[in-house]
């Protein structure tokens, strides 16, 4: 499983990187941590002519926390997020979810931007971005643009990025300290891709849920929002009855595929189970 042959460049600026990609006729690929893409190449499922390594480009990493929310540079590694104690305060859903990403060594190289660009529906970051309505800053040959997370993911391992576009950062909107949240995923072993997962957050006003956002992992070709489950909770108290209704709605609205690890029927039920557990922990967690 040796890698196929390719050229390699590690430019020192974004402009250079974009130019290299643009000149590559679609067969040049940017590489961040490489923790997902190098295995793809090892299986020779991708054979790019040129890898443009983003590691020498300044200002692509870093985590900025402000009133506007949390901005994570594309080259920030999983471990940078887990090491940043401010996040537990600023957006606790993030570290809770990222704790499920792969293993120790992978987290030392894998990046947030790489995960978004890889667009694996079984990964955590794409669903987090979608659920929290994050904005993705992108730079390409035609200039900068901002993509809503919902517009980034177009299919399994497919995005709306042009071949010359590079993700610069992901920006999560402001997170009210009183926000309630939950994250549950289930995988066959520690660090494996989830058989299903749920990320959610909502505001609570006068005992009722508002702005309910529920995203699911690994039950479709892309990360998806569970709109029916959201509707089942919006404006209601999060209690046994509404949780049950949301669970049923979640299982009802997904149409997952079966594979060698789990049947479709199981995944459909599992997403409801996990939603129930995530809601219970969200509701049960002490209000801050």
């Amino acid at each position: 499983m040796k890698l196929p042959s390719f050229d390699y460049q590690a430019p020192a600026s974004l402009a250079e990187a974009v130019a290299l990609l643009a000149a590559g006729d679609g067969s040049a690929r940017p590489i961040a941590g490489g923790q997902s893409f190098l295995p793809v190449m090892a299986f020779r499922l991708a054979e790019p002519s040129l890898l443009v390594d983003l590691r020498n480009i300044p200002d692509l990493s870093g985590i900025k926390i402000s009133d506007a929310g949390v901005r994570i540079g594309a080259m920030a590694r999983w471990r940078d997020l887990l090491d940043d104690v401010r996040l537990a305060e600023a957006m606790p859903l993030l570290p809770a979810a990222i704790d499920h990403v792969a293993h120790y060594q992978i987290r030392n190289r894998g990046t947030v931007g790489g995960s978004l660009a890889h667009a694996d529906p079984a990964a955590e970051m794409p669903t987090l971005a979608l659920t929290c309505e994050a904005q993705i800053d992108v730079v390409g040959a035609k200039g900068e643009r901002v993509l809503a997370a919902a517009d980034l993911f177009t299919g399994a391992l497919q995005t709306s990025l042009e071949p010359d576009e590079i993700i610069v950062a992901v920006r999560f909107p402001a997170w009210a300290k009183t926000k309630r949240w939950g994250f549950e995923e289930f995988s066959r072993r520690r660090g494996d891709f989830a058989l299903a997962g749920v990320a959610l957050c909502y505001d609570e006003t006068e005992g009722r849920a508002a702005n309910v956002r529920i995203g699911a992992i690994s039950v479709a070709d892309t990360p998806i929002r569970l709109k029916n489950a959201e509707a089942a909770l919006e404006g209601r108290a999060v209690d046994a009855a509404s949780i049950e209704a949301a669970m049923a709605a979640a299982s009802g609205e997904v149409d997952p595929a079966g594979d060698i690890h789990a049947s479709a029927r199981y995944r459909k039920a599992l997403v409801g189970t996990l939603l129930g557990r995530a809601l219970e922990s969200a509701a049960g967690r002490k209000a801050r």
Binding site: G34, Q35, L38, P39, D53, R55, R79, Q105, I106, R109
Partner: peptide, 25 residues
């Protein structure tokens, strides 16, 4: 392909999978 961990080495203090890192990196 980055699963077994046998190739782990320490790069700048961090444990990494050396099969998922290019020598040029």
């Amino acid at each position: 392909h980055g699963v077994c961990g046998a190739c782990t080495v320490i790069v700048n203090g961090d444990a990494v999978r050396s099969c998922l890192m290019l020598a040029v990196q």
